[in-house]
Design a binder for these strands. Structure first.
Lengths: 179, 179
DNA sequence: GACGCTTTATATCGATTCGATATATCTATA
DNA sequence: TATAGATATATCGAATCGATATAAAGCGTC
């Protein structure tokens, strides 16, 4: 996932490690640590996907190479492994995906969340049925259900938006699109 | 975090690895893998915190030792490092914490989320101000804000509950508690 | 009752990531 | 120019990931 993040952020403009970290925090990926980021930079450099532009003082800015751009497109285009952080990272780079690919990715994510919701609902019902009497465990399970529901409705908004984009972009329907 | 999870689940009753994994999934910790779980079991066994009860076929159930129970209490009592999964795991074992410790933990978590919310709000405003025009990045940042807000109100409910527990349990006020 | 099939269950392993610590460089300011 | 705090990179053992291997148990079915 870090590879995608680094390549994606460098696609816009060169940055050094510290800047990358700062942007990741802004985007909500506070978990990525320097202990994974710096090794990732060296890994990517060794693979020729990014290259260093030596600069002032201690900073070492990197830029994306052509090879790196290809690899970024490849990772972004590959079917996503359904994990929360993974999906959100992908979302941050949706601008680099074609609208149809966006829609596919969103639908896939949605169905994953729906099945997660079902599991969460069952777990909650089982807990209530078992009547263990632990309010906090029940609250945790209730929260899992609620936040998954909220994620699904968030996705539904995105799906609606992606559909409208496609309608606007490819107006080759009988109605004869405008613009 | 896995250590806390394993010890906490075994505190209730003996289980084998596969059962532990299943319960973790129910509780919403789908991310823990067998590749971390089984090594963790051996680590904990070597430290004398759990011990195996050989059983039918391939299953190897473990039970918590006295030493393990002490260590569990120690970990649960130690100040939590603010990370989402960490906190939720703790919540799953709140039943083993004293009400005042519960309240302290909840408040600490709340203030952490409030500062995260502020950062998320700033990031969203900055993105809007920058006017990059990428709807998906903006949506991601908006979602970060919304879900953090929702987490805070979830915590507020828990805090209210924890307060009511303490009021009910230690009714040594002037009003003279009932029960 | 032996044949496949799926589920249950543990193990293993290289690569990645964590988390804590160390250290160097800038910047302000007194 | 000392000192402090923010910026920036590096390092390293331990934990975790994720994918794969293996094997026993359960189960229909012919």
């Amino acid at each position: 996932m870090l590879d995608l993040a680094v390549l994606g952020l460098l696609r816009k403009r060169p940055r050094h490690g510290y800047e990358l970290k700062a942007r990741l925090v802004e985007l909500g990926f506070a978990r990525v640590s320097f202990g994974s980021l710096y090794p990732a930079l060296r890994r990517l450099e060794k693979r020729g996907l990014i290259e260093a532009l030596r600069q002032s003082g201690r900073r070492k800015a990197y830029r994306l190479t052509d090879l790196g751009e290809q690899e970024f497109a490849r990772i972004l285009g590959s079917t996503d492994h359904d994990e929360d952080g993974r999906f959100n990272m992908r979302l941050a780079f949706f601008q680099y995906l074609e609208p149809p690919a966006r829609l596919r990715s969103l639908k896939r994510r949605r169905s994953h969340l729906v099945s997660r919701l079902q599991n969460a609902q069952v777990a909650l019902q089982d807990e209530i049925a078992a009547g263990s009497g632990d309010h906090y465990t029940a609250a945790l399970l209730q929260h899992n259900v609620a936040s998954t529901e909220s994620d699904i409705s968030f996705l539904d908004q995105l799906i609606a938006y992606a559909r409208s984009e496609m309608a606007a972009e490819a107006p080759r329907t009988l109605t004869g699109g405008k613009k």
